[in-house]
Amino acid sequence: MVDVARETPARVAVVDDDDAARISLVRLLEVAGYAPCAFDSGAALLESTELPVLSCVVTDLQMPGITGLELQKALTARGITVPMVFVTAFGTVSAGVHAMREGAVDFLEKPADPGALLDAVERAVAKGAALATRAEARAANRRRVELLTARERQVFEGVVQGLPNKQIAAQLGIALKTVKVHRGRVMQKMGADSVADLVRCAETLGL
């Protein structure tokens, strides 16, 4: 259960064309300490200014216009990786499998058990926080890499590949002493205390 005393409640979008179901979900989330925002369609959510601050989306599957799966696809296409929880009275195994394959946290049947729904939302919010942390680390490391000169970038790539200084020097056609100087500058600019730190930086960037 989410801590009702949290200073900044997680923003959870509820998307459902059924007024009663939408209102019920919003009330449940409010009591649990979340900050829900309601939408009667997927299109309304996609047009909302709330998108950048959402921690989770709870959506119906079958809705007029944009379905829940289409909403999931549209968000992904925009580069928005907010975790989603599907709640539907008309779910199919294939739809559930597709939703989970695309990153959904859970796929629940209506009427969803309140405890199961809140558990799914809690897991989705936690997943969203982890994704945000990784995105922030990736952005910070990308900014650091941009500070490297072309030669420093080459040395950086050699180091994270596990190459010894001698081999890096031979590959780049420069003196061993020069490699050591560049390596020191790379460590400083990347804010790394060890080779392991550099490797982790490279991993966040997909290098």
Rank of each mutant, 00 (worst) to 15 (best):
residue 78 R to D: 10
residue 135 A to E: 12
residue 43 A to H: 13
residue 64 P to A: 01
residue 65 G to D: 10
residue 80 I to H: 08
residue 156 F to H: 06
residue 48 S to Y: 15
residue 130 A to D: 14
residue 138 R to N: 06
residue 99 A to W: 09
residue 118 L to I: 12
residue 50 E to G: 07
residue 146 E to S: 12
residue 102 E to W: 07
residue 108 L to N: 04
residue 136 E to F: 12
residue 115 G to C: 05
residue 75 L to G: 15
residue 149 T to I: 03
residue 145 V to S: 08
residue 135 A to I: 05
residue 110 K to C: 05
residue 159 V to E: 02
residue 122 E to K: 07
residue 72 Q to T: 13
residue 77 A to P: 04
residue 71 L to C: 12
residue 86 F to W: 03
residue 78 R to T: 14
residue 78 R to P: 00
residue 35 A to W: 01
residue 35 A to K: 08
residue 141 N to D: 15
residue 160 V to P: 04
residue 138 R to C: 08
residue 36 P to G: 09
residue 113 D to G: 08
residue 74 A to W: 13
residue 137 A to Q: 11
residue 123 R to F: 00
residue 74 A to E: 14
residue 74 A to V: 08
residue 139 A to V: 13
residue 111 P to T: 01
residue 133 T to C: 10
residue 150 A to K: 11
residue 56 C to K: 01
residue 108 L to W: 02
residue 23 I to G: 03
residue 67 T to D: 12
residue 73 K to H: 15
residue 100 M to R: 06
residue 158 G to K: 05
residue 40 D to V: 09
residue 71 L to Y: 11
residue 64 P to F: 02
residue 48 S to I: 04
residue 158 G to R: 04
residue 161 Q to E: 13
residue 44 A to E: 08
residue 88 T to A: 01
residue 78 R to A: 11
residue 90 F to R: 07
residue 151 R to C: 09
residue 86 F to E: 00
residue 117 L to T: 07
residue 160 V to T: 11
residue 102 E to H: 14
residue 110 K to R: 15
residue 103 G to F: 15
residue 80 I to N: 14
residue 73 K to E: 12
residue 121 V to M: 03
residue 40 D to I: 08
residue 120 A to L: 03
residue 31 V to C: 01
residue 65 G to K: 09
residue 86 F to D: 03
residue 128 G to H: 09
residue 141 N to L: 02
residue 114 P to A: 01
residue 37 C to L: 10
residue 129 A to Y: 13
residue 135 A to M: 10
residue 27 R to S: 09
residue 87 V to H: 00
residue 33 G to R: 02
residue 149 T to Q: 07
residue 122 E to W: 04
residue 156 F to E: 05
residue 68 G to M: 00
residue 28 L to P: 05
residue 132 A to L: 09
residue 101 R to Y: 09
residue 33 G to A: 01
residue 159 V to M: 09
residue 146 E to C: 10
residue 75 L to I: 13
residue 86 F to N: 00
residue 80 I to T: 11
residue 136 E to C: 11
residue 48 S to K: 06
residue 95 A to D: 12
residue 67 T to A: 10
residue 107 F to T: 00
residue 88 T to F: 03
residue 82 V to F: 15
residue 41 S to R: 06
residue 87 V to N: 01
residue 62 Q to E: 09
residue 36 P to M: 06
residue 116 A to H: 08
residue 40 D to T: 07
residue 21 A to I: 06
residue 39 F to I: 03
residue 96 G to N: 04
residue 52 P to E: 02
residue 121 V to R: 03
residue 148 L to M: 08
residue 104 A to P: 13
residue 113 D to V: 05
residue 47 E to P: 02
residue 123 R to M: 04
residue 84 M to L: 15
residue 164 P to I: 02
residue 83 P to K: 02
residue 157 E to I: 05
residue 149 T to R: 08
residue 71 L to Q: 10
residue 19 D to K: 01
residue 50 E to L: 07
residue 134 R to I: 11
